[in-house]
Simulated assay, not measured.
Amino acid sequence: MERHEIEAFLTLAEELHFRRTSERLGLAQGRVSQTIKKLERRIGVPLFERTSRRVTLTPTGRQLREDLIPVQQQLQRAVDRAVAMGRGITGVLHVGYSSPMAAEILVKAAGVFRARYPDCEVEIQEVMLFDLFGPMRGGRVHLQVTEHPVDEPDLVLGPRVMSQPRVLMVPAGHPFARRASVSVEDLAESTLIAVSGSVPQYWREYHYPHRTPQGRPIEHGPPATYWTEVMNRVGLGQGVSPASEEAERYYARPDVAWVPFRDAPPVEYGFVWPASGGNARVRAFVDTVCELRAAS
């Protein structure tokens, strides 16, 4: 059997309607009918029973359908693999993330991606905030989902993946913990604990500013290297620190309260990859994530 015959038969076996079958296949209804008749002549028995009102499978047709479904799936996998190899979607794709919310999205997308491109493996790994772009610039990560802003001449800022309301982590006994919300101006009344390391100055100032929008100075405590260190210092009463709302689901603890900002911009996350690394694997994975986000 030729591939177009398999497609015509299986589509009609599913639709049991010649017009809908022709619409799905993009063929004239007469062409579908001719293909099925030719197939029945070759086999020697009818595959469908046709009346003016309905189309049904014969016993032979039902058996042929069961036998051909795995064949069609194998053919499609072979075609997909050939297309992937032709586009260079092979090897190992290393994808980084700097927040657990992004990790969930990436792991789900990796499963879909592997099914589409079985010759390309996806490895998901965490990227520490204190070395935000180091793994990518060192070639250990091909692309990653990172908190905005990103303004680096050697990096490409890709599509946005998600956006989260911004909150303030405060010690459980802090006066802010009793409030329904806080303002960015309130940061001038406390000590801010920031992440240190090789993050760009504009990125650090955006998330851990030294002045409020009205120009009031914000005191900074000793910087922390790791995110868990930030939370530990907040829990010990050494200061406050901003975070995304969804982070509480992963890092909730009794000595830290999460208070919403009422006037701070959201925390936005987007894809980033090296300007020299926007290859077919990267583009295909980004497209997969965007498709899943659009469907959710």
Rank of each mutant, 00 (worst) to 15 (best):
V267R: 06
A264F: 06
I193Q: 01
R41D: 14
E245D: 14
Y202H: 02
H17Q: 13
K38N: 10
P265W: 05
N232H: 11
P175R: 01
D67A: 14
S296A: 15
A280K: 02
P222W: 05
R140N: 13
L187W: 06
R262M: 12
T58I: 04
K38C: 11
A28V: 10
C120F: 08
R20M: 10
V127H: 00
A257P: 03
P222S: 02
E23V: 14
E126M: 15
F261P: 01
E49W: 10
G91Y: 06
L187T: 09
R283V: 12
P209A: 02
L132D: 01
V256Y: 00
S183I: 09
L75G: 03
Q63V: 12
R87M: 14
Y206R: 04
P153R: 02
A264I: 05
F133K: 00
G138P: 05
K108W: 15
W258K: 05
R3H: 07
R24S: 06
S241Q: 00
P209L: 04
V282L: 02
E152M: 03
V234R: 01
P165D: 05
L57E: 13
P165G: 06
A224N: 00
V150R: 03
V45E: 14
E123Q: 15
Y97A: 01
R19H: 12
R31G: 09
A294M: 14
R253A: 08
D131F: 12
G88V: 05
A172Y: 03
L57R: 07
C120A: 15
G44Q: 09
G30M: 08
H94K: 12
P242W: 02
P159T: 07
A8T: 06
E229V: 01
E104N: 15
G134Y: 09
M169Y: 01
Y250L: 07
E121P: 11
R204H: 10
A243W: 10
D80N: 09
V141K: 07
M136F: 04
H220L: 04
P274Q: 08
A28G: 11
A102V: 13
R19D: 15
H210L: 08
E126S: 14
E268I: 11
A194G: 02
R249D: 15
A109I: 13
P260V: 13
R81S: 12
Q238N: 06
E246C: 11
V195A: 02
I6R: 00
L39M: 05
P254H: 00
A295W: 11
Q238M: 10
V79E: 10
I36Q: 00
S33Y: 13
G221Q: 02
P274F: 09
S33D: 10
K108M: 15
L129F: 14
H17E: 09
F176R: 01
P260S: 13
V141R: 05
R114A: 09
W227S: 05
D151I: 08
P118Q: 04
R211L: 11
E104I: 15
V141C: 07
E14S: 13
V122P: 04
L155H: 00
G278D: 03
P153T: 06
I218Q: 05
A275N: 06
S196C: 08
K108G: 15
E104Y: 14
V79Q: 06
A110F: 15
M169P: 03
F133W: 03
L27W: 12
L157I: 08
I69M: 06
